[in-house]
Design a protein around this nucleic acid. Structure first.
Lengths: 184, 184
DNA sequence: GAAGCCATGTAATTGGTTACATGATTAG
DNA sequence: CTAATCATGTAACCAATTACATGGCTTC
């Protein structure tokens, strides 16, 4: 075949990527996603298990039975081809659209029709949401241990999440100060 | 019925909201979305026209034929009920999950397996993307004219977009400096 | 012995996009 | 006279979620 990674979708690469980082079972992939990339990508079992099948048929991952007692379990690892395909995807130059889908911002956009206190309440809700999200992100602290100076990309993406929401909070505060200078 | 806004989806409220801001036709809603909220919400004709039908059946909008010459056109406006439903939605206290879906961050997350220059190239791509997005946002400048001190929420959401991406750029820069202190 | 977690998997539905069809008008 | 824009609409398709089904193990 010309390009074994051509038919794969982003969820497939996520599965591949998590296995490359050491996740072995479908269940583990799900949990790892939930404690790492969930803030910018989600995935459900209904995607993971069929994806694992496809990846194995394409010989990008290999599985062996690895039961815990009588509880069945399949352990996966990358094949050399899988590692190559993942690498190619990571370095591929292609547009990466920034897709945000945020009801809160939609509501804020339309908030001109609200009264001052109503608009302020909405703005406060947005600020609190960001504060909560920052707390959730900081509770993760990936790759436990003191700052490893080098190449800790999970930490990088975590920081981006925090920076995002700090920025949002900053804009909320600035806007509030403008609308109500007495509180400045 | 108990709550005329209960059955509506977010796209419906977007349609309602755009009409409340003066968009009159389906076509116009589409264009207004494309120059305002598209950075945090999108909508297609295939959603807009059926939505308009639903909203009219629910008596939240009213339409009259308003052809331009022989080119057919339906002009919409909010009914009092529509205005009320929109208002209720805007002030409703309900969770507003921040949903980001970003392949770029996924790729960055997995970038530990890349070589230094490869990881750097990816980081640069992310930074350039944010720069481009900031430029696109600043090209919009909504509610043309000099800063209207008060209640300009479209401008608020615009600023959030800019602040977001400035924050991302900041994190990119910081990370790069850490990984390669010689460039500091 | 019940609740919760480990573990795999599928069916049905949802929500949305893409692509198309149609046709009038305006700008170059 | 052609391309772009105005304008409305539908059909087919796709990605992803929700909800469920099954069953073993662990903890209280």
């Amino acid at each position: 075949m010309t390009d074994p990674g051509a038919a794969l979708t982003t969820p497939d690469f996520v599965v591949l990527g998590m296995i490359s980082r050491g996740a072995s079972s479908g269940y583990e992939i799900k949990k790892w996603v939930a404690t790492s990339i969930r803030f910018f990508w989600t995935i459900s079992e209904a995607q993971i298990y069929p994806s694992l099948e496809r990846l194995e048929r394409a010989a990008l991952v290999a599985s062996r039975p690895a039961p815990n007692g009588r509880r069945r379990r399949r352990a996966f690892e990358l094949t050399p081809a899988g590692r190559r395909v993942l690498h190619d995807w990571l370095v591929r130059a292609e547009p990466m659209p920034f897709e945000l889908r945020d009801v809160a911002l939609v509501r804020l956009f339309f908030a001109d029709s609200l009264s001052r206190p109503e608009a302020r309440a909405l703005l406060d809700a947005v600020r609190r949401r960001s504060e909560a999200r920052i707390a959730a992100l900081q509770a993760i602290e990936p790759t436990a241990g003191p700052a490893q100076t080098d190449g800790d990309h999970p930490r990088l993406t975590l920081r981006m999440g925090v920076a995002f929401h700090q920025a949002m909070i900053g804009v909320c505060d600035a806007f509030e100060r403008e609308a109500d200078p007495s509180a400045g």
